[in-house]
């Protein structure tokens, strides 16, 4: 595995070692090793159904791995319970692949959800204001705030999900396919936004995407998941001459190569 030592100066924020997960007889993850440094933006690429979303969910504890270890800021994420787990989850924001908006709540209530619960509880008016500001950042007008998610288009729902993920300014943000279903201009706005969140706010980001333009815009490092393991991991500048047949085939979208077209 080619790992650039240059990006490894910052301490690790997330460490995954030997993480495996099977669903029945289907072995999805077969030993994922991945390290994400503080303030780094890592993009995970890989074919459809290779377990990219499952990887993110394992880190969040939404799916329990069968084996392996995951630590976040030095805390064992798989064994954290009660208060420790709450503190851990407080650091995260997540955009789900399908949006996962609460359809019984208004758009702004979705975005402001976390601001209205728990320790960081803010007054309603203030939470609403923050929500509208976050909506603006993902390119949505203030009048969408008072609609229900079901009244929005797919791409708009995705952006509301994005606004919700960043609303509480989390330290670590996961974006599961942030630009799928968006037009090229909006996709660009979102790419810029993600980059900005990482460089300006110092957040640590993990993004899943199939869009190579996004990869080049967002990533510091790229990890390629295939056959349940990270086949290659390296700086974004090296993806075109990685010397790895999997990455070569994937980046160039070639039908011929080690990755079978039928999975």
């Amino acid at each position: 595995m080619t790992d650039a030592p240059a990006t490894r100066t910052a301490p690790a924020k997330i460490t995954m070692t030997g993480v495996t997960k099977s669903f029945g007889s289907k072995h999805v993850l077969r030993g994922v090793d991945l390290e994400v440094a503080r303030g780094e933006s890592v993009v995970v690429i890989g074919g459809s159904g290779t377990g990219k979303s499952v990887t993110l969910k394992c880190i969040l504890g939404l799916i329990t791995p069968d084996a392996g270890a995951i630590s976040v800021d030095g805390t064992d994420a798989l064994r954290a319970r009660g208060k420790a787990r709450e503190a851990l989850l407080d650091k995260f924001g997540m955009l789900f692949q399908g949006g996962a908006l609460f359809d019984s709540l208004l758009v702004w209530e979705n975005v402001a959800f976390r601001l209205m619960q728990g320790a960081r509880k803010k007054p309603k008016a203030e939470a609403r204001e923050i929500a509208i500001e976050k909506l603006r950042r993902v390119g949505l007008k203030p009048d969408t705030a008072d609609l229900y998610p079901a009244e929005l288009s797919g791409g708009m729902q995705k952006r509301v999900g994005l606004a919700r993920a960043i609303a509480a300014d989390p330290e670590i943000i996961f974006f599961d396919e942030p630009t799928t279903g968006l037009d090229p201009i909006m996709a660009d706005v979102i790419n810029d936004l993600i980059r900005e969140i990482v460089t300006e706010m110092g957040a640590t980001a993990m993004t899943i995407t199939h869009d190579m333009t996004s990869v080049r815009r967002i990533a510091d490092r790229v990890a390629m998941l295939h056959d349940g393991v990270i086949k290659w991991c390296g700086p974004v500048g090296q993806i075109d001459d990685s010397g790895n047949p999997y990455v070569h085939q994937f980046v160039n979208g070639l039908p011929e190569g080690p990755i079978e077209a039928v999975r």
Binding site: G61, F92, A100, L101, F113, G118
Partner: peptide
Amino acid sequence: TMRVTEQIDALTTLST
């Protein structure tokens, strides 16, 4: 429906 559309997972990631 909330389970299937990952809304229950989303709650967890929103510290709820």
